[in-house]
Design a protein around this nucleic acid. Sequence first.
DNA 1: ACCCTCACCTGCACGC
DNA 2: TGCGTGCAGGTGAGGG
Length: 274
Amino acid sequence: MPELPEVEHVVRALRPAIVGRRILAAELKLKRTAPDISRPAFNRLLKDALITAVGRRGKYILIEFESGQMLTTHLRMTGKFVALTPDDSLPPYAHVIFYLDDERRLVFCDMRQFGRMRIVPNPSKLPKELLALAPEPLAPEFSEEYFLSTVRKSHRSLKQLLLDQTRVLGLGNIYASEALFLAGVSPMKDASTLSKPRARKLYQAIRDVLQEAIDSGSTLQIDLADGNGSYFGSSERFWRVYEHEGEPCVRCRAQIKRVVQSGRSTYYCPRCQR
DNA sequence: ACCCTCACCTGCACGC
DNA sequence: TGCGTGCAGGTGAGGG
């Protein structure tokens, strides 16, 4: 159930586990997981592929091969990677299996079947949804100027704008609420009406909330060598407003409210956030 | 170009 | 106990 920080944790756990490994065989069990390729073609293209790098773009995981091919994975809501030792049995909802050259299997599991994989023939043929993504939020390209002009141009609510991966990358439903709380800005406010100083504050809050989540997660135990085949990047975290409806605000003690914006829950403090 | 709604799935908590 | 309802941290296709 990942937003950018969780995906970053998955990437960091995956990297030492699979870089340098060769895929002896690939088995796409659920066609839906890689909808724009046939199962035999998927299995054939990844057979004998040597993994040279694991990266990330927004919430997409990028696995690169020596051939120049790349496998992109989006975990959506419930996707997980699991590393299995030869003794481990297949976990539930295992939709893709990669048989690695060290006897282990890298398995993609996904209860809700929303997760998607795609094979990219080479780096110049990135799919359009990847090309459309906003700059990496923790990189210099996501500048204050970029954010200020993006905010100024939008007449949607700030919450909706923050969830739009083509405008602001990496936030999901939780971190969007958290960033707005940190900045003291109402999720319902029309983006274009936000003053420059408050937009700056929101910009900083976005980066802080993501960086804090990445840092706090880096101490998590994400060892894949345990006998059960650990789930990559599982984490527990403390939210300031998310799922705190009715509880006192940590800053002013007013009751946290929940509203629904375009079908999704938003949590906020009606007193601190204007 | 932009933005909204809905569809895609399964499981779980809750109320009757 | 069983059933119906609503909800879950994500996109992306289709339409206005």
